[in-house]
Simulated assay, not measured.
Amino acid sequence: MNGELNTRQDVHMLAGAYALDAIDDEMERRRFEAHLDGCPSCAQEVAGLAETAARLGQATAATPPPELKGRVLAEIGQVRQLAPTVARPQGSRRASADRKVGARVAAAMAAVGLVAAAVLGVLAYRAHTELEELRSANRQVAAVLAAPDARLAGTTERRGVEGTVVLSRSAGRMVFLASGLQPLPDDKTYQLWQLTPGRAHPAGLLRPDEDGYTAPALAVSVPGATAVGLTVEPAGGSAAPTTAPLLVMEMPTG
């Protein structure tokens, strides 16, 4: 009996890995799929984790900063083109002067090229660093989603704001994302909170896209937190909530 119970628990713990297509063993995958057909709780959990993983993939697709193209074109526009050359007798003074002018232009062109290359190198390095930071954060999010004890909960408020939270107590982290959020002015931001009895702990700032979706936000789980909340705060965030919550939802259990 105990062996059968442990087997069921082991299969249930594969929900996160299955949602991320991270089960390499074919027999283990088939065993979980057979279990999935008769387990509504696992089916719901896989669906929620798969949606979260899809949102994570969208967040990972980073594009170069929009100002990069403008800066490149600006640098190119500052590079002078060589004037067309006219063939002259090799021995003339004018030909000698033209050669000197051409040498000066070539040197100036080389200097401009070096400056442009340096500027572009700095911009490329910054873009690469930002992309690596994004990838690192997303790897941490994926680790929470694939954790054996990852649990998911969701809710929809009357105002149409929907929240989803995935919690892994073994990893000590949670992932939160929301939809249905309205755009805010530049001096306002959405702020996430972890709620313990009598206190709200800041858990990160969120900025939705044009469709009202936020990228998955990763936060270290606060011991004793039983719920998460979402409020509108001044840009930069607040030490404590200053407005009524748009959303409050219980932490996943189990």
Rank of each mutant, 00 (worst) to 15 (best):
L167H: 06
P148T: 01
R159A: 15
T164D: 12
G172N: 08
F176W: 12
Q191D: 05
T189H: 14
A153Y: 13
Q194R: 04
G160S: 12
H201K: 06
N138M: 14
P148N: 01
P183W: 15
L205G: 04
L145E: 01
T164K: 15
T156G: 05
T189E: 14
L192M: 09
S168C: 03
N138F: 11
A142D: 06
A203N: 06
P185Y: 09
D186T: 09
G160T: 02
N138W: 08
D187P: 06
R169F: 08
L177R: 12
Q191S: 02
R169D: 08
V144W: 04
A150S: 01
R173C: 07
L167S: 07
Q191L: 05
V161W: 13
A143E: 11
R139I: 09
R139C: 08
A142K: 14
P197R: 10
P148A: 03
K188H: 14
S168H: 07
Q140K: 13
P202Y: 14
R199G: 03
S168Y: 06
G163K: 13
R151P: 01
A153I: 01
V144E: 00
V166D: 02
V165W: 13
P197F: 09
E157K: 07
A150F: 09
A171E: 15
G204C: 08
P183A: 07
R159D: 15
L205I: 05
V175M: 03
R159K: 13
A142V: 00
G172Q: 12
L152Q: 07
P183D: 07
L184T: 03
Q194K: 00
L192V: 02
N138I: 02
G180N: 05
A171R: 15
G204D: 08
D187S: 03
A178G: 05
S179I: 02
P148M: 03
A142W: 10
R158G: 11
G204V: 03
D186P: 08
L192G: 02
H201A: 07
P185Q: 09
D149H: 09
T164W: 15
E157D: 11
R139N: 10
L206E: 00
S179P: 04
L167Q: 05
L206R: 06
D149Q: 10
E157M: 12
A200R: 09
V175P: 02
N138A: 15
A171W: 11
A142P: 04
A146L: 01
L177Y: 11
A143K: 12
A203T: 03
R159I: 10
E162W: 13
L184Q: 10
L145T: 00
G160Q: 14
Y190I: 01
D149S: 07
E157H: 10
W193M: 04
P202K: 10
A153C: 08
A150D: 00
A171T: 07
N138H: 14
A142Y: 07
A203D: 05
L145P: 00
A147H: 00
R173S: 06
A153Q: 13
R151Q: 01
E157V: 02
A147E: 01
S168P: 01
L181R: 12
P183Q: 11
R158F: 13
Q191V: 00
G198A: 05
Q191M: 07
D187F: 12
P183K: 13
W193K: 08
E162D: 13
G204L: 06
G160A: 12
T164N: 12
T164Y: 14
R199W: 13
F176R: 07
